[in-house]
Amino acid sequence: MNASIGAGPSRVPWNKGRLTGQKPPLKLKEIWAIRVRLQLSFRVRDLVMFNLAIDSKLRACDLTKLRVRDICHGEHVASRATVMQQKTQRPVQFEITEQTRDSVAAWIRHAGLNATDFLFPSRIHDSPHLSTRQYARLVHRWIAWIGLDDTACGTHTMRRTKASLIYRRTKNLRAVQLLLGHTKLESTVRYLGIEVDDALEMAEQTEV
């Protein structure tokens, strides 16, 4: 007799009812809409997390584990930082813009953080830092705030946003590869979905 028969209810697919695939990047006006909303609501931590997510282009697992010392030199927030990626075990560099540095400095003062502290400590006692699940919830909240479909977005929306903007402005795929910390150029092509986007862009510019 087949062991699978009568073995109980079948497992529900993890992605049932969810949109899967590439998460679209935010547009400039959407970035600023979220940023202004966070500023006006005085969400100091969320503003720092949002700004750093855009600047750093880090995966959620790396962003949530940042320590103060990773982006600060003494009492000053650095303009560039390097972190070791959990997924690839390879270092990746990223820039920290002035507005992000200002928000980071304000958050460190507000939270009373020291150099060895996690930049985003968790409010849950079992975890020393914000979890990727908690971060994902925040991202969905930010997206929903400005009227976008949060089911179509996720943490990779944050990672992909600035990389996509840089590619659109420069068409320098190698630079984007380095910024994302990809080991292969093919990974960057797939991640940005640029072949399809470029083809559509050329088609839109071609009148027949």
Score class of each variant (00 low, 15 high):
Gln85Cys: 06
Val139Pro: 10
His73Glu: 15
Val77Thr: 09
Arg141Trp: 02
Arg101His: 13
Tyr135Pro: 01
Ala78Trp: 00
Ser122Val: 05
Val139Gly: 05
Arg141Lys: 09
Phe94Trp: 14
Asn114Met: 10
Ala136Asn: 13
Asn114Asp: 14
Ile124Thr: 14
Ala115Pro: 03
Thr100Gly: 15
Thr132Cys: 11
Thr132Trp: 04
His140Glu: 03
Arg109Gln: 11
Gly112Asp: 13
Ser79Met: 09
Gly112Gln: 10
Glu98Leu: 05
Thr116His: 13
Ala115Trp: 08
Thr82Gly: 04
Ser122Phe: 07
Leu130Phe: 02
His110Lys: 13
Ile143His: 09
Val92His: 03
His125Gln: 13
Asp117Ala: 12
Ser103Lys: 10
Arg123Met: 04
Ser103Glu: 15
Tyr135Cys: 00
Arg141Ser: 07
Phe94Tyr: 15
Leu130Asn: 02
Asp126Trp: 01
Val77Arg: 12
Ser79Cys: 10
Gln86Asn: 11
Arg141Met: 00
His125Ser: 12
Ala105Asp: 10
Arg123Thr: 08
Thr132Met: 04
Trp142Arg: 08
Ile124Phe: 10
Trp107Leu: 05
Trp107Ala: 02
Trp107Arg: 03
Asp126His: 09
Thr132Ser: 10
Thr132Asp: 10
Asp102Met: 11
Gly112Cys: 05
Ser79Tyr: 12
Arg123Ala: 04
Ile143Lys: 07
Glu95Cys: 01
Gln99Leu: 14
Gln134Lys: 12
Val83Ser: 08
Ala136Thr: 07
Lys87His: 10
His110Glu: 13
Ser103Gln: 14
Phe118Gln: 09
Arg133Gln: 12
Arg137Pro: 00
Val104Phe: 03
Gly112Trp: 11
Glu98Asp: 13
Ser122His: 04
Val139Arg: 07
Ile143Glu: 05
His73Thr: 07
Ala136Trp: 11
Ala78Gly: 02
Tyr135Lys: 01
Leu130Arg: 05
Phe120Val: 01
Gln86Asp: 14
Ala106Pro: 06
Arg141Asp: 07
Ile143Ser: 11
Gln99Ser: 15
Glu98Ser: 06
Pro121Val: 01
Ala78Asp: 12
Thr116Met: 06
Arg141Pro: 02
His110Met: 08
His140Phe: 04
Arg137Gln: 12
Val83Asn: 01
Ser103Val: 09
Arg137Val: 00
Met84Gln: 09
Leu113Thr: 09
Ala105Ser: 15
Leu119Pro: 01
Met84Phe: 11
Leu138Asp: 00
His125Phe: 00
Val83Thr: 03
Thr116Asn: 13
Arg137Gly: 15
Ala81Phe: 08
Ser131Asp: 05
His129Arg: 11
Thr97Leu: 13
Asp126Arg: 12
Arg80Cys: 02
Pro121Ser: 07
His129Asn: 12
Ser103Asp: 15
Ala111His: 04
Phe118Val: 08
Arg123Leu: 05
Asp126Lys: 10
Val104His: 08
Arg101Thr: 10
Arg101Ile: 03
Ile143Leu: 11
Arg80Val: 01
Glu75Gln: 14
Trp107Ser: 04
Thr116Gly: 12
Glu75Arg: 13
Glu75Leu: 07
Trp142Lys: 10
Gln89Phe: 03
Ala136Pro: 04
Leu130Ile: 04
Gly74Ala: 03
Phe120Glu: 02
